[in-house]
Amino acid sequence: MIRFLLGATGLLAGMATALVAVLFNPLAAPVAMRSPEFGPNLVKQYESPGFRGLDLGPVSFLGQQGSTGFEEPGIEDVRVMMMVLEADDSSGKALAIKLSALSADNSILQGQLGLHSHWNIVWPGQGSYLLTGQENYWPLIRDELVASYRPPRDRYVVTSAGEGLLAGGAGRFTGVSGAYAETVIDENAGPGRLHGLLEMSVSQNR
């Protein structure tokens, strides 16, 4: 009996230790640095207008489709958004499209549960930026899973380190290049609430 209890205790302790190691893996895929380390020279904020497709809850990343998902098999793991980036001192309002799909590189062991994301941002009468990046929502998902132990933060940088690229532009912005990072602020906020920040480091090549 003692041997059985000892074995069961060891088994449970091993499982719990492994689970904690997975959740708080120090080798998890890093996300981009926040400013000022990132050095943005254009910061735009947006409010959540809603989305179509994949939601960003843990079950979606684990293969359980959200209620607003697309039915077609080819796009069942896709999320589309369109939003207005607010005007600020450096630039006016812009209309932005964000297309995302579950990343092919996702791995729970490596702390990577994310999306391939692409932005198409157009400024009226000026032109557009095209951004492409890899995102990791693992820190946000992990903190939701252990919320009773440690409350989630109110904002998360989701762009993976070195993976947010300003790929080019059109119109007045032809020849731009650079990098970007996105910060998600309270994903569960309703419409009209501040939803995210898009920080861009833009350089003009011509």
Binding site: G7, A13, G14, T17
Partner: peptide, 14 residues
């Protein structure tokens, strides 16, 4: 015994 079952439990999760 404890160590073996501990490692087995960790391996099952991983």
């Amino acid at each position: 015994l404890f160590l073996a079952s501990f490692l087995a439990g960790a391996a099952v999760v991983l």
